[in-house]
Each structure stands twice: as structure tokens, then as C-alpha cells.
Design a protein around this nucleic acid. Structure first.
Lengths: 227, 227
DNA sequence: AAGAGAGAAATTGTTAGCAATGTCGGTGGC
DNA sequence: GCCACCGACATTGCTAACAATTTCTCTCTT
């Protein structure tokens, strides 16, 4: 009986109210989970979700199946679905896999990067240094995300990119915690600069190793952050 | 196979051939696709599959959704599902991602391997050498699969293992072609031996690099085999 | 003969309802 | 007082029917 009705006062014009397709439901649920709207171990009752999103139970069911394949949701026979709780050990494993995959992307990016993209990354490096100097954690975090995204895009590795994105969805809670850690930017800045330097120098092996080292250090931080 | 359920003794599950659960349908379809029973681009009509497997259309629908998330099936709005055809470029990408992930596993395996497991891998090395000497391609191929599986198991990396398995399912057709290539064992044997040597020597970096080199060479073969 | 167009057939998308299963709270025996 | 049993409720699993969309085919016009 929550306030969902108040939100959809005049929602008739929106495509979304009457009938949501299964894919749309999956997207909404995925966003709700990674954004923290739905917390780990929270039960996902099909009829409740159907009422809340205004979709049929069948579509909810399909969406939950898909999310369970993606690893965001856990289903047990005749007992329903809940948001999967990722343990610290799992988060470490996930980050290590990400390290391997993003290292691959960094390697390919170093092979393919163009001159204009080199300029872009170098400007990004300056912005990151400035952000750390000014102690602007918000800006640094944003640059961090841009850097990883740009390297993945430059690598043009579709398969790796898709896998990385799925893994990020699973471990997003731990990434979030990490970003607020106080001394973190000072530690990670040189790692990020090393990545940029190697990629811009067209040095695939060094780029891969720098990226792997960086994310392994992230994994170490998660490992030592006991829940 | 089909009849294994009928043999269940005091089966409360009346599901002998009449009702298959969605998960069972997904398993059957997955096997049918990776074993080549269903060929790429083959249409997967829901009612036909429902009749063939004796399941309801709803379950077929859920199973197809799950397989489409896994990347084995391609769905388009209002046009149904078909077995996804993996292009050569994609197969190369997939193999490169596998290279990165199995390299991670080799690295971890080198850290964790026990003495008895070292003995096991060394016996496997002998078997592979023998197989190549005798020209026994069948035995060599089997040892190959065992080697990769054992290293993944020794690494104890659940996340990496799950991702590798999914990727293998997508590219299984190309792996199959590769195995029949005439001079292939002679090329890959030293690579396999190098992997075993590094893992047994507890040398993580060398193990990772040997595994990556091996699978990159597989990717090269796929790349140069234009269909 | 080629092309547009209408209508039929095939197929997917969606919904409501029923059956099966698990959970929870109460009751009685020990 | 505690544990096993049992009946009501909540929730999932499943099916069949209906609606919407696409594709195919046949006809009619130019």
C-alpha cells in the first residue's frame, strides 16, 4: 500500500503504465537492484511487483528468470525470488575477474588508440590530478568511471564489455563503499596515471599489467574490508 | 537424455514425460544447441518446442528468455527466437576473453596447487605426449579438455569458472572445427606442457602468460579460418 | 508481368484463473 | 512448558484461452 499510486497520478500518457513488456520490467528491476532501491535478501514477490510496476505476473516471472541468469536475483524452487546477497569473497572474485577482463581491454586499447583519443585521455589525467589536489572526491570518482568506460570503448571488445558490465552490476555495492574510503584517491591516482601512460604509449603489455595491478589493489581493499 | 526421469523410483514427481519444468527445458535446449542438434539461425517456434518436449508454452518461453541472456539464443520482438549464429569475429573475441579468464585461473592454480595435484597434472602431461607420439587425436583432445577443466577446478574461482563455461557454450562450434585441424596437436602440445610446467612450479605469472599465449594462438587459428 | 494491397494463416505477446506447494499460527498431547 | 500435528493462508507453478503482430499468399490493377 505504499505511495506508488501517488506517483502515477496522471500516468496514462506514459507508455509504461498499462502494460510493461518483460524486457522493460527486467530493466526497471535491474536498475532498482543496482541503485540500491531493492536491498540484498529482500524478497521479490511476483504479485507485489506486478501490482507495483503495473505489469502482468507472467512478465514479472520472465524478468526474474532473466535476472537470475544475470546473477542479480536468486530463485529457489517454490519459494520465490530474492535479491542475491553477494558475499565479500564473491565480491573479491568478481573484482579479480574484472581485473582480467579490463586488463584485456587495456591491452587492446593500447593497440588501437588514435591520436585524438590520446589527447582525450591525457586531458582526463590532468583533471584527475587537479581533483586530487583540490580534494574533490566527487569529481575524481566521476573521472574514474569515465576513464574505465573510455578504455573499454576504445578497446572495441564487445564480448568483454558485456561481461564487465554484468559483473559490475553484481558488485556495485562494494564499489560504492570503496569510493567513500578516505585515503583512497591518493592511492589510486598513480595507478590510473600509469594506465593512461601505458595506453597512450601504445604499450599493450604495460597497459594490461597496469590495469590488472590497479583492480587487484581494489580487490585487496575489498578483501580486507570485513563485513 | 529423455528417459532418465522415468527411472526415478518412488517418484512423487509425476513428471515422467508429461510436464517439464522451465529449468529442465532450458537444460535440454542448451544441450541441443551446444551439441549441434539445433543449428545456427534455426527458428525456435514456441508451440513446436512445446509439443516436442511435452512442456507448456509458458515454460518454453521462460527457457528461451534465459538462453537469450546466456547468449545462445537471439530474440526479436514479435518475431520469435532463433539459435544465435556466432560470427568469426565474435568467436575470436570470445576466445580472447576466455584467454584472459583462463589465464586468471592458471595464475590462481599455480598459487594453490597441492603436491598430489602436481602429480596428477604431470601424469596428464605424459599422456598428452604419448597421444601425440601415437597420433591418437581422440585421446589428445580428451586430455586437452581434462587439463583445462582441472586447472579451472584447482583455481577454485567460481565466478571465472561460470563465465568461462558460458563463453564455451557460445563458441563450441569453432572449438569443434579446430580440434579436427591436422597439424594442430603438434603446435599446441608444447603450449600445454608449458602451462603444466609453470603451474606445477608455483609460478603464477608464468602460468598466466602460458595460458594466455596458448588461447591467443587458438584465437589466431580461428581468425585465419574464414568461413 | 510486376507491384500494391487486402485478407488469411501462423506465431508471438498477454492475461486470468486454477492447482500445487510451502509457510505460519494455533491446538492438543506428553 | 515443549514438541508434533494440522488446518488456513500466502505464494509460486502451470495451463489454456485470448489479443496483437507479422508473414505469406492470392488477387486485382496498371
Amino acid at each position: 500500500m505504499a505511495g506508488w499510486k501517488a506517483f502515477s497520478v496522471e500516468t496514462r500518457d506514459r507508455v509504461s503504465v498499462g502494460t510493461l513488456t518483460a524486457a522493460e520490467v527486467a530493466d526497471l528491476l535491474r536498475n532498482a537492484i543496482v541503485s540500491g532501491d531493492l536491498v540484498p535478501n529482500q524478497r521479490l514477490v511476483e504479485s507485489d511487483l506486478a501490482a507495483e510496476y503495473g505489469a502482468s505476473r507472467g512478465n514479472i516471472r520472465v524478468a526474474l528468470s532473466e535476472l537470475s541468469v544475470e546473477g542479480l536475483v536468486e530463485r529457489v524452487q517454490n519459494r520465490g525470488a530474492r535479491v542475491r546477497a553477494v558475499s565479500v569473497d564473491e565480491a573479491v572474485e568478481i573484482t579479480e575477474v574484472r581485473a582480467a577482463l579490463e586488463a584485456l581491454c587495456a591491452r587492446k586499447a593500447a593497440e588501437r588508440i588514435t591520436d585524438s583519443e590520446i589527447g582525450e585521455l591525457q586531458r582526463l589525467a590532468e583533471r584527475m590530478k587537479d581533483a586530487v589536489d583540490r580534494g574533490d572526491r566527487e569529481s575524481y570518482s566521476e573521472c574514474n568511471q569515465i576513464l574505465h568506460a573510455r578504455i573499454i570503448a576504445i578497446s572495441a571488445q564487445q564480448t568483454a564489455a558485456a561481461n564487465i558490465q554484468r559483473l559490475r552490476g553484481q558488485a556495485v555495492r562494494f564499489q560504492f563503499r570503496l569510493a567513500r574510503q578516505p585515503g583512497r584517491p591518493a592511492v589510486s591516482l598513480p595507478q590510473h596515471l600509469a594506465i593512461i601512460k601505458a595506453v597512450c604509449a601504445h604499450d599493450p603489455a604495460a597497459a594490461a599489467e597496469a590495469m590488472r595491478y590497479h583492480l587487484e589493489s581494489v580487490a585487496d581493499v575489498i578483501r580486507s574490508s570485513n563485513p
